[in-house]
């Protein structure tokens, strides 16, 4: 085997580390993308019996965005196993307790429920903020593209730029500005 082929062999079967910024991302939509990287479905050598999945590091999981009124309407179910042990926790209460829980559950739910699922979840690292341990940062070689654009707040835009921006609406002549 030539040197080039040998390197190709390593590159094919090595685990790649991907980073994903969850800022203003929908966890349930991004779980579908993260799942593909965790299982290795983005590779041409993919096969369900083939252990070719990658590692994904999610950062800023505290900054995820849910759609519409999902924060107060989506409930997470848990049952202790005892009679009357059922609890329903709203998404914002779950997020208050553990800011990594929602994205973790979303990825877990996106995958098929087989024996591999819990082992695949071991390859998912989630951090609530931007601080990651140094040994994990060193492994990362790829970034997964965000699904949604991070919106810009109006007070973060320059006042000059806001004034110079082309206008659509004009006031009537007798309007008194407030």
């Amino acid at each position: 085997m030539s040197a080039a082929k040998r390197v190709q062999q390593w590159a094919t079967f090595a685990r790649t580390w991907h980073i994903f910024d969850c800022k203003w991302q929908d966890p349930y939509q991004s779980a579908e993308v993260i799942k593909k990287y965790l299982l290795g479905m983005h590779k041409p050598i993919y096969h369900p019996m083939n252990d070719c999945g990658d590692v994904v590091v999610c950062i800023n999981s505290r900054e995820i965005a849910l759609r519409g009124n999902d924060w107060r309407q989506r409930a997470y179910f848990h049952h202790t196993g005892y009679p009357g042990g059922a609890t329903w926790t709203l998404a914002w209460e779950v997020h208050n307790k553990d800011p990594t829980m929602i994205i973790k559950k979303a990825v877990y739910k996106a995958m098929r429920g087989n024996l591999q699922r819990r082992h695949t979840m071991q390859r998912l690292f989630i951090y609530p903020g931007e601080e990651i341990p140094e040994d994990i940062v060193q492994n990362v070689t790829n970034q997964i593209r965000q699904l949604r654009l991070v919106p810009t707040r109006l007070d973060h835009i320059d006042e000059e730029e806001v004034k110079k921006f082309p206008k659509v609406m004009d006031y009537p002549t007798d309007y008194v500005l407030k």
């Binding site: 995820i64 965005a65 999902d70 109006l154 007070d155």
Partner: peptide, 26 residues
């Protein structure tokens, strides 16, 4: 997203809102 265009009694930081309102929503 337009937190500078709010009434004067509004807290000018969306993350200081109460309950579920402090988290990002799209």
């Amino acid at each position: 997203l337009m937190i500078n265009l709010t009434p004067s009694y509004c807290k000018k930081d969306p993350k200081k809102r109460y309950g579920f309102k402090k988290f990002n929503t799209y």
